[in-house]
Amino acid sequence: MSIRVAGRRRTTASLTSAFPRAEIVDVTSRAPQPWVRLSPFYPHGGIPVPYSEGVTSQSVEGIWQALKVFRDTDVDPGKLRITTMKGLKRTVRRHGPVQGHRTGLHGDRLLSYEAARRRIYLPAYRWILEHRAADLVERLRDMGDVVLLDYTTNGDITDPTSPLSHAALIQLHIEGRWPREDGADAARGGQ
Rank of each mutant, 00 (worst) to 15 (best):
R177Q: 10
W178A: 02
R139S: 06
D72A: 14
F19L: 03
L148D: 08
V75I: 03
R93H: 14
G189A: 05
S59I: 02
R30H: 13
Y113S: 12
R37W: 00
P43M: 04
F41L: 13
S165Q: 05
R4L: 12
E114L: 02
L172P: 05
L164E: 04
R30A: 14
D150R: 11
A22G: 02
D76H: 01
S57D: 12
L164F: 06
A116N: 09
G46P: 07
A13F: 12
S14H: 13
R177S: 07
T103S: 13
V60F: 12
P43S: 10
S52A: 07
I63Y: 04
Y51D: 01
D26S: 11
A6N: 13
R10S: 04
I24T: 03
R71C: 02
S2R: 15
P97N: 12
G87K: 10
E114H: 02
D74N: 09
R118I: 05
L38H: 01
L169C: 03
L172I: 05
V98E: 07
G7I: 11
E130L: 11
T152W: 13
L149N: 10
A133R: 10
L105F: 08
V60Q: 10
R10N: 04
T73G: 15
I120F: 02
D108L: 08
A18T: 08
I174S: 10
V49A: 00
T28K: 03
V75D: 02
K68R: 13
W178F: 06
V147A: 03
S2A: 15
F41H: 10
A186I: 14
T152A: 07
T152Q: 14
K68G: 01
I170P: 01
I24S: 05
R126N: 06
V25T: 07
E130S: 14
D145V: 00
S59R: 00
M143I: 10
H101Y: 13
L111C: 12
A184Y: 15
L122T: 03
R93P: 11
R71I: 01
S39C: 02
L67A: 03
G87C: 10
G45N: 07
I174A: 09
R139E: 03
P20W: 10
V5W: 06
D185M: 04
F70E: 01
A184K: 13
R37G: 08
H166C: 06
D135E: 14
Q191K: 05
P123E: 08
T84A: 10
R188V: 07
V98Y: 09
I170D: 03
